[in-house]
């Protein structure tokens, strides 16, 4: 039993006593998915990279915040924000009423991006009755669930593309920005098809509702990036020359 006692003792020490020294500076943990290029992904050096990494780092500089990057699975990304594992969600998350009820969003740093369907070249897709793939817990998934189409849900964005390639699903519905790279790389195998679907607002940074101070700082920093054109430049850099007028 002494084993267990000393184990629990050490644990209690570690958990309840360590780190009682207060921290200097305001540090913010940036939560992202790390699997949604070009918004965010993990590069070959094992670091978070992408459009949002650059935007986030710049915002932190302007708001004088010390930022560290954390990745989290998409489907538990909001619960882990509200329970305090990190302080922001910066993961290509569209501002929707449903999400806005639970967390707060800063102003958008990326304009509303229509969602688009991608299918195998030459495929005849029935958008209202066919099999459409989407990532679970996304606005696209709820959109398809409410339309007449047959929804197939996958946990990662990669799986949704694989499902179209191997014929499991007729098409995939996702953000156009994410799909563009994949279509370009597929060498004609995959193509955009059907109508664009406008769902959700622009992309904003999610923060806890109780975290008004952080939201204010980020809002101000986004405004300043919009004012001097750095945001437009970053969008153009990561989204194939896309033109925005912030």
């Amino acid at each position: 039993m002494t084993n267990m006692k000393s184990f629990l003792g050490a644990l209690a020490l570690g958990v309840f006593a360590a780190g009682a020294v207060s921290a200097a500076g305001h540090s913010v943990r940036m939560g992202t998915e790390g699997a949604y290029p070009p918004y965010n992904f993990i590069n070959d050096a094992g670091q978070v990279d992408g459009f949002e990494r650059e935007v986030g780092d710049e915002l932190c500089k302007r708001a004088a915040l010390e930022c560290t990057w954390v990745t989290n699975e998409w489907d538990s990304i909001i619960p882990n924000l509200v329970s305090g594992n990190y302080d922001t969600i910066i993961a290509g998350m569209s501002i929707t009423d449903e999400r806005d009820k639970v967390i707060d969003f800063t102003q958008e740093y990326y304009p509303p991006d229509p969602s688009a369907y991608v299918a195998l070249a030459g495929a005849d897709v029935d958008f209202n009755g066919g099999v459409i793939a989407a990532q679970a817990s996304t606005i696209q998934a709820s959109y398809i669930a409410e339309s007449g189409a047959m929804l197939v849900e996958f946990t990662s964005p990669d799986d949704t593309i694989a499902a179209v390639k191997n014929g499991e699903a007729d098409a995939v519905l996702a953000d156009r920005g994410f799909l563009a790279d994949i279509v370009k790389d597929s060498g004609g195998e995959l193509v955009f098809t059907g109508p664009d679907v406008a769902i959700g607002g622009g992309v904003g940074i999610g923060v806890r509702e109780s975290d008004g101070e952080l939201k204010g700082k980020l809002d101000a920093a986004i405004s300043s990036m919009k004012a001097d054109g750095t945001l437009n430049a970053l969008i153009a850099k990561w989204f194939d020359g896309k033109v925005t007028n912030y």
Partner: peptide, 23 residues
């Protein structure tokens, strides 16, 4: 507070400012 679970900064485990390895 609503959906949020909010404890004071120094009660966080590990502290927000702690290096990533501690997290």
């Amino acid at each position: 507070q609503g959906n949020d679970f909010v404890v004071c900064d120094i009660a966080k485990l590990p502290l927000n400012a702690a290096p990533q390895w501690q997290h």
